[in-house]
Design a protein around this nucleic acid. Structure first.
Length: 288
DNA sequence: ATGGTCGCGCAGCGA
């Protein structure tokens, strides 16, 4: 808890999380509850499905976080909540391609870490225009990194990348042949991010199979363990060396009205980050 | 194996 703290606190460890919330409006209470439990210092969100004007700045402020939001409402929408600073907000390459594909990219510097929250296009089906747009989006994401970042930076690229990088990232690889999320071009696009200088830090800490971040709402797939690992925390080498743990919080997928994605987070030894002052709510004056 | 459920918004689409 940050309540009761006097003066700025310095953190030696920073927790950076990502969660496709599938409508922040519907998920608001759940997100607030998860933040209170998990205490992330930075939370990247995807599929907020909100216009910027409807972003719940005050609710995050009350919890001690600044919020940057990029959305047009209805579909897509990405955000970054931070309690260790939030500056140099960028919408990146949004709107520059033949199919802009909506609000799917947001970058901000939190503490001294560059955080990029992305929501990759789904692709729907192979050999369709939306599939080609997905690959094009990936190409533009890589180009953004090449132009606007350096592999030597402290950078986290996180979010719903809509790619299962390897066969162990899907519950049954034989069902995912010649389909989106696993196709060779998609995996090559994902691999190109790693080749640029990013590390799949969750996989480093958890080489075991059966670790997923998304489960179809239908057919009780979550309870049957039928999921995919399509949400990722990709970090540069300098941060990978300082990552002490990474986890997927399956518990957040349980209960009533969950998102179909679970949040995941990485804990980094980044000494000297200053925790933002919690907002002091105005108090009602009592007449005497 | 198929389809099964959500969210948005009010029909049917997107995931």
């Amino acid at each position: 808890m940050v309540c009761g703290r006097i003066g700025p606190a310095r953190l030696d460890r920073v927790r950076i999380a990502s969660w496709n919330v599938n409508s922040l409006k519907v998920r608001q209470e759940r997100v607030e509850g998860w933040i209170a439990d998990a205490q992330p210092d930075v939370l990247a969100m995807q599929e907020t499905k909100l216009a910027d004007g409807a972003a719940p700045l005050m609710a995050f402020q009350m919890a001690g976080y600044e919020l940057a939001h990029h959305g047009e409402g209805r579909w897509n929408g990405v955000a970054i909540a931070s309690r260790v600073g939030l500056r140099d907000v960028s919408h990146g390459f949004e709107g520059t391609g033949p199919d802009a594909e909506g609000a799917r990219f947001l970058a901000a510097t939190c503490g001294d870490v560059r955080v990029v929250s992305v929501y990759a296009p789904n692709g729907r089906a192979l050999r369709t225009e939306t599939y080609e747009a997905k690959l094009d989006w990936y190409a533009r994401l890589l180009a953004w990194l090449q132009v606007n970042a350096d592999p030597r930076d402290d950078l986290v690229l996180t979010g719903d990348l809509n790619v299962a990088p390897a066969d162990i990232d899907v519950y049954d690889p034989t069902l995912y042949v010649d389909s989106t999320h696993t196709s060779a071009p998609e995996r090559a696009a994902f691999r190109a991010l790693l080749d640029w200088g990013l590390v799949d830090i969750y996989r480093v800490h958890h080489p075991e199979p059966g670790r997923y971040t998304w489960w179809d709402y239908r057919a009780g797939n979550f309870h049957k363990g039928l999921g995919m690992r399509i949400d990722h925390l990709l970090v540069t080498a300098s941060l990978a060396a300082r990552a002490v743990d990474a986890q997927i919080d399956r518990s957040a997928r349980k209960g009533s009205l969950p998102s179909d994605h679970a949040p995941l987070f990485v804990d980094l030894d980044v000494p000297g980050v200053v925790l933002r002052e919690p907002w002091d709510p105005p108090r009602l004056m009592r007449g005497s």
